[in-house]
Design a protein around this nucleic acid. Structure first.
Lengths: 334, 334
DNA sequence: GTGAAGAGTTTAAACGATTAAACTTTTTGC
DNA sequence: GCAAAAAGTTTAATCGTTTAAACTCTTCAC
């Protein structure tokens, strides 16, 4: 069942492959005989022709493919973005290949390698900790790229990210204004700038409100120790001499794990503990006190990422950096 | 910043491109001079050579790419499978391109088209309603493929799917044995075989237990009316002259929407209403009565799908059909 | 009638790899 | 010493497109 090529059509119609190509691509408008053009189209359809995109890519040096690297496609945050990017890319005929780095630099490098070998036209990347050098290499190689969700302030590059400092600031300010004064933060232990910004915003907001943040209010967990780590962290925060009365989760995963644990405790949200979390997941609704959360504008972020990427693919010069704002959605938990 | 090709290396070293190709691909082992082989490798590294996978694909007629079509990559069911498939594919050097059909035949056809133009080596597909003809076409074209989660009993093809009849049967039997006698089912209105099996298993299990299922116990919702539909359906079931005392959700989305509504009602789960649902999501844990659910063996399903696909890519003849069993995980809701 | 313009089509190279087959040089056996 | 085998390397075709340039007819103006 050999696939039909331009040549097959050309032979069948009795013309050159060039003509077939011109007709099927609507090039040389008007300069092609009506009758023959019809005949070619017909024959192509009849023979079930489909463009070999690989051959075309080789010749045109465009694959119409975008590489998407996320931390973990099975995380709702990533998969929501993936969906938005898929749709936006599709509008411009682009197809998306994806990979999950699992926050591991080695996996990340492997994915970059694979995607470059496949000649992707551009990359949308949520880089893991330590990927600054790779990003900088890609830029130097003039690979069109946009960082999404995370970036490295020391490495110039396009990015679309949340203003995490402000988001944390808003969340903490809100908690303080709701009367909380000892506010905990559960975050990852990592060098990732966006996570540090989440911490910094938290600290700065507390200080701005005249509260001196205690070091023990901040719980930092290794990236790979969430299931056990979060419950322990919560317990520590609740067993301080002065237990926290407010809590901010720095990610959906931390929060989901945390809520499961809180469900088992006797304390009551929000009376004993007010909670705000980053990110939106369906589970936030089902907790007995639906969670107050920081909504990231994912649709805008995804669309912006594609827009910037497309621009970068045309013009490799300029750098676009896009800071988005989170919206605090107040609900029952705080 | 032109990319480096075999030719560039060949010229730089002063040999033919053939030799460079042989060396870099470790072909013709032993038949190549040690010194020159070293030199070539060195130069390749120095010049930053990377294989142009597009050119290779054109020649070898293999793209090392798998097309994955799901209903919606942002649905946790799909993205979990995507992740498993990504990992399994990666083991064999395959990359995954994906697309969401949104349960629309037209989108599905477009995706198939795009993926075939891109010469994917094989397809893993969760087909939407009405896609039987396309599947049958693909088979006739000898495109290696595996259906996942759904299949068409009238169209022979490889598939990996749940034994949905048994899963529903188990769930209903469990509910009846827990003392429930009026059991509702919230399902989609569709021709999709797997959904019908979920309904059929439900009906058969009731009858096997000597219960005559009332038609009004079965609520069928259009695929695009979940947000409004589910609450209404629940209300109808609860306002029957003899309200239902057990309920089975046929999917994670139906359930998530349902739980949100149930949270607002005064009735108590499981006392007033026992619930079982298909699929696993983190939100099931956070409902005040953690949900009893039917766990699909996603890791096995994903791995099997890749296994079968790889086999199909070698040998287009045989058809493998793989029925998996769901596990009922009893928890607080029933 | 003739040269130029226009219309319609073909030629042929190129993209960057792979690989069978051919070729050249060295080694080996006797 | 010399043929044959082995070792090492090159030649050249090919995959299926795209596309500039060349080519061949008509048609038209004057």
């Amino acid at each position: 069942m050999k696939r039909v090529s331009l040549k097959d059509i050309a032979e069948s119609v009795g013309v050159s492959t060039a003509l077939v190509s011109y007709v099927l691509n609507n090039k040389k408008e008007g300069r092609i005989g009506k009758a023959i053009s019809e005949k070619i189209r017909e024959t192509a359809k009849l023979m079930g022709y489909r463009t070999n995109q690989i051959a075309r890519s080789l010749k045109t040096n465009k694959t119409l493919t975008i590489g998407l690297i996320v931390a973990d496609i099975s995380n709702p945050f990533s998969s929501s973005l993936a969906r938005i990017i898929e749709d936006a890319a599709d509008k411009y005929q682009y197809t998306v290949i994806f990979g999950s780095s699992d926050e591991k630099l080695s996996k990340f490098e492997k994915l970059i390698d694979t995607f470059l070998n496949r000649q992707v036209d551009g990359l949308i990347i949520s880089p893991p900790d330590g990927a600054a050098a790779q990003i900088s290499y890609l830029r130097q190689q003039q690979i069109p790229l946009v960082l999404l969700d995370r970036y490295f302030p020391e490495v110039p590059s396009n990015y679309v990210a949340l203003d995490n400092h402000k988001a944390s600031w808003d969340a903490v300010t809100y908690l303080v204004e709701k009367g909380r004064s000892r506010i905990g933060l559960i975050n990852y232990r990592s060098e990732l700038f966006h996570l540090n910004q989440r911490a910094q915003g938290y600290l700065d907001a507390l200080r701005a409100k005249g509260i001196t943040p205690l070091p023990e209010w901040q719980e930092l967990l290794p990236l790979d120790a969430v299931p056990e780590g979060v419950p322990e962290a919560i317990d520590r925060l609740l067993h301080l001499p002065q237990p926290v009365d407010g809590l901010l989760f720095a990610s959906n995963t931390l929060c989901a794990t945390g809520l499961r644990h809180l469900n088992r405790l006797s304390l009551r949200v929000p009376d004993d503990l007010a909670i705000v979390t980053y990110d939106e997941t369906e589970s936030l609704d089902l907790f007995y006190a639906p969670l107050t959360y920081l909504r990231q504008p994912l649709p805008e972020m995804g669309r912006q990422a594609i827009d910037i990427l497309l621009k970068a693919m045309e013009n490799r010069q300029q750098t676009v950096q896009c800071q988005m704002e989170a919206t605090l959605i107040p609900r029952a938990s705080a």
